[in-house]
Each structure stands twice: as C-alpha cells, then as structure tokens.
Nucleic acid binder design. Structure first.
Lengths: 335, 335
DNA sequence: TTGTATGCGTTATCAA
DNA sequence: TTGATAACGCATACAA
C-alpha cells in the first residue's frame, strides 16, 4: 500500500491545458486570470485532488505559516493538572486559527530538547517563536531574536534580553490579596512561594513581602514549585514553624488546594482559623472545599496577546516591548 | 532590523573549500568523508553558524520529521480542566522527543478548522497524523489513510474506517465499577453518561447498562458532555427524577466532581447516602471531598502507544489494527 | 492576461 | 572519496 503519487502543479497544468504559472496563480487566488481559465484549473485541481506541497512553497516564499510555542519544561510537569500551559496553548491556538497558521508545540525540558528547539527554530521551520515559563537565564530567546527570528516571551526574560514580552501584574495582584487578608484582621500571614528561578515565582513573593513589611507584619515563607505535592510539603513546614499562623497566600492554586487539604487534616478550619488565597483561578478553584479565593490571571488572554504580538512582529511591524495584563482578586469562601 | 542572510550549504562549501555535496555528507553524518575534510567542514559550519533549511531538505527527502495531533474540538473545550487532552499530548510529546520529531498541534473544532487540517495534512507537511476524541463519523482519518498518509486514532473510528486505533477498555472498567457498587449493597445506581457521538461516551454507557441489567437493577440515565457544568445539570435532574438513588457512576471525573458538589448541596452524604464513582483518574480526583473513587485510564500511555504505532507505520512496518489498554478501578472514599 | 525561465537549499545519482 | 549535476515542487520577474 504505497502512497499514490501526489499530483503536482505540473500535472494540473497539463490536465487544464495551461502553464504551471497559471495554475499557481489560480491556487493562490490571483485575480489576473480569466474566469473561464480559472474554472478549468479549478476543475483539474478537483479531479486530480491536487494539494500544494507546503515544503516547496515555503522554500520559495521563505515563510512556513507555522509558529512554535516553546515550553521549557519536561513533559511531565507541563501537563500535570496545572491549567496554565493548557490555557496558554488555547489562547495561542485561537489566534493562530484565525490567522490560518499552525502551532508547533515544543517541550524543551532536557538539554537535548533545548538543542532540538534551537535547531528547529533556527532552521527556519517556523515564522516565529513563543516562549513560556522560562527558567533562569535562558539565552535562547535572545539568541533567536539576534538571528532576526521573531520572538515573544511570556514574562520578562531574566537575562534582560531585548525581547518583547507580555506578563501579568503579579505584584499588584498579590499585594491586593495580601491587603485583603490584612483588612480582614489577619496578622500572621504566611506564604507558599513559587520557584525563585522564574519571574512568576519571584514577583509573587515580592508582592507578598512588600505588603506584609509595609504593614509591619512578620514574613513567614516556605517554597514550592507550583505543584500540589510541593504545596503539601510547604504547608506542613509552615504549620510546624508557625503554629499560630492565621492566613496563607499560595503562589499557585494547585499549592493552595494542597494547603486547604493539609490544613483540614491538621484540624484547622478554613477560613475561620486560617484564611487561604491562591493565584491563577484555574477551574478547579471554584470546586475546592471551601471554594478558593484567588488572584485571577488572564492566562488565555495572555496566550492570545503573545500570539498577536508575534504575528505583528513577523509582519515587520513595530510592537510594544512590554505589555502587562491586569490581575483580579476573586473572592470566594476560603478567605 | 532585517534577518541576517542565513548561510547555505553553498556558503559553507566555499568557506571550507569543498563541494556542496561533501558538506551535505558531513552534516548528515556520512562516514565516507576523509577525517581532515570533515574537520574543515565542521569548522566552517561553526564559523558561519550554518543550520540546514528544513523545507529544502524535506522537499527532497519527502519527509518532514513532524507529525500532527488532531483534536477535533474547539479550543475552549480541549483545555478546560480536563486532563485527557493534556495527557495525550504529553504522551505523544515524550515519544516524539525520543524520535527527534516535532509535534504539530491542530485544533479542528470548526468546519474551517477541519479544512485547515485537511489541507495541512494532505499537503504532506507532516509524516503522519494522530487523531483523538473523534466525534460522530468523521471521514478525515479514513480519507487520509486512503491517501497513503499514516494515521492512528484514539478510539475506534465510528465510521468503521480501516484505520489502526488504540483505545482503553471502557466497558470492562465501567462494568467493574458498577459491580463494585452492587457488591457494596447499592441497588439504585444512576449514571451520568457522556456524549453519545463519541466512542468513549457510548461504551461507558454500555458498560453501565449491561451490568445493571444483568443484575436485574433499574437503569437511571442522564446525559452530559464530560464537563463539570453538564455534570451539575445532570446530577440535579437525576436527583429530581430518582430521589431515592443510592449511587452514581459518572462517565468522567469532571462530571463526578460536579456530582459530588451537587449532592453535598442537596444534603446527601457521600458515600453514606450516595456512592459516587468517576472515570479518568485525573489528578484532581485525589483531592476532591471526599476523594474520588474512579476508573483509571492510562491516558499518557495511550498517547505514547499511539505515537509509537504511528512512527512504526510511517516506517513502513506492519502494525496491529486495534490495541486495547486495560483500565483499573481506583478505590478512594466516595464509594 | 498568459507563458517562460529561473531560483529557493537540499539530497541523491553518477562519474571521476 | 569527492564533485558535478539533476531533481524536489513551487512562486515570481519578466517577456510576450
């Protein structure tokens, strides 16, 4: 069962009795072709089941009509049940569908994966690259940008590369959440911080710190990596170190969810004994026990905006170098 | 800021003082090149920062080293907080990374999207296509297969196309769950079924039906579409129609989660008054209140297996036409 | 308005 | 072992 020989422009041209150039024009919607000829070409295309070979096309047009979304995380992490990556993908997919372009998903958790991404993107197999969730000072975005490849990051690149980025207002959102806790009379507010090699982790911690310090309250910090397991561990440590804490801000909803459960197991009532606030507003947040008060970040909108920016960049337009999207405190019952 | 002219084989050849053919050989790891020449070529490649143009390569090799994963769902549905698609993507990504191939993600919820997928895949821009979560009798997999394009589906294609597929043992898993409920003394067992235009929905309902009928118990059925909202609605209807039900099998964990909450709001205790079992075993299942008893399906493994099958197919190997992966009842506290 | 001719950057065939 | 040279399938400048 070998693949039937795919018809080429040449074949269609013969069948329609015209030149390849004319067929090409019709296929690409040129208006300078006489109607009867267009008709004949279209019939030939249909009869032969002709479909343009995209590799050949992109070889001459220098465009591929596809863009890469690079997630520098091992596959296992990316799709645990964190809604952040899926949300980003969803936003990007929506925008790209509208632009009739393809999404190439690249996971780059390992050094080998990192190499693959480098080869693929510099190999001009995509018209642009979206980066999400960068760890540490990844040099790749800057490198690609210098090669003239359109690049947009989610979150300010930590290596200060001159790459356009979009982020959400972590600090403002966390500060609002913390102030809300304070205004409700909480005085011993702990935090489960995120990883400190990511902007999101760093800034959410800063938002907490700034606010408790300004209020003259103590800092009580444990670190996690945004996952539920890390949230459980951190909450236990917090409870051991500060038995009298009366509120917890967790830097992700997943960690907040774990904290809820851990507090429950420790016999603390939420929100009576301990108030809990998360960050993200994933769908599950409305279904936790009790429903989670959290800082909503417009993650799908972030994905869409990144993509629009990238497409504009690929079109040669001038774009903003930094866009910050607002966050919003969503009050439910855990605080 | 225009893109620096990318160096081509030609440029490298000039720099190294050899022919294009030789450079090509070195780049592709041919062993028939003298060591000193290899060395010279490699140096030139490094100096110029040469990276092969993938479009040109795939034009001649007829391979693209990328495969498509087609999700015939609107973007909004695919990444709600269902862990099924992410799990599939994760499994596929793992296998493809090992094979050094790229994953092109294609959402095809709209007719226009469906067209895009058709054009893209028949345009030979991918070496093979993975289909997931097919609705109704989608003709695309069969069509591609007839065009000689390697195709693998998750779930038996409803149009009976002769396409290799992998599925999990829905019926066996649901039957085990239902029997478990019966063995625990439940006699009025309802179900929140999935959409009946999908194999997963159809077979999970069959598993329930067969078992309750065999046990001489009544059928109590409401339909959802695997989402939480639909689960809430269905559970309310069930409660209204059968106030004395003592167990619910929901065809997805998301619907089960919604059922848990709806039952709680209705004043029913789980599992004392009503036992609840879900299907999927998403991560959240362990964190519901009470933790959810559910039928685990090896979703990541499914993604991996599909991909391996596809790669084998693309290699021209003979492969199994149907593979069924086992499911497993995970007992927690909701039943 | 249509056709001819050329080039896009590789790999593969065939001589040398 | 290496080098010419011919595809690969398409878009486009230019000529007609």
């Amino acid at each position: 069962m070998t693949a039937a020989q795919r018809p080429t422009l040449e074949a269609v041209a013969r069948q329609a009795g015209v030149s390849r150039a004319t067929v090409s024009r019709v296929v690409n919607g040129s208006t300078t072709v006489a109607e009867p000829i267009q008709e004949a070409v279209r019939r030939a295309v249909a009869e032969l089941g002709y479909v343009p070979n995209l590799a050949a096309r992109s070889l001459v047009t220098q465009r591929t009509d596809s863009i890469a979304l690079v997630l520098p995380e091992v596959a296992t992490r990316v799709f645990s049940d964190d809604q952040v990556f899926p949300g980003l993908i969803r936003g990007a997919a929506q925008e790209l569908e509208a632009a009739d372009k393809q999404l190439v998903l690249m996971l780059a958790g390992s050094p080998a994966g990192h190499d693959r991404v480098t080869r693929y993107t510099t190999g001009r197999h995509v018209d642009g690259v979206l980066f999400a969730s960068l760890h540490g000072e990844d040099p790749l975005p800057g490198r690609l940008a210098r090669l003239g490849i359109p690049v947009v990051c989610s979150g300010r690149p930590l290596d200060a590369a001159d790459v356009p980025y979009i982020d959400v207002d972590h600090i403002g959102g966390v500060a609002a959440a913390t102030r809300y806790l304070i205004s409700n009379g909480r005085r011993r507010i702990a935090t489960i911080a995120g990883p400190q090699d990511m902007v999101a982790g760093i800034e959410r911690l800063a938002g907490y710190r700034d606010t408790v310090v300004a209020a003259g309250l103590p800092q009580m910090i444990e670190y996690g990596d945004f996952t539920r397991e890390s949230g459980t561990t951190a909450m236990r440590r917090l409870l051991a170190a500060y038995p009298d804490l009366d509120a917890v801000f967790a830097a992700s909803d997943l960690m907040a969810h774990a904290a809820l459960r851990t507090l429950h197991e420790a016999g603390r009532r939420v929100p009576e004994d301990v108030a809990v606030i998360g960050f993200d507003d994933i769908e599950t947040a409305a279904y936790t026990e009790p429903p989670l008060t959290t800082v909503r970040q417009p993650i799908v909108e972030l994905g869409r905006k990144m993509t629009r920016l990238l497409l504009a960049l690929a079109d040669g337009a001038e774009v903003e170098r930094a866009v910050v999207l607002p966050t919003e405190l969503v009050i439910r019952q855990s605080a």
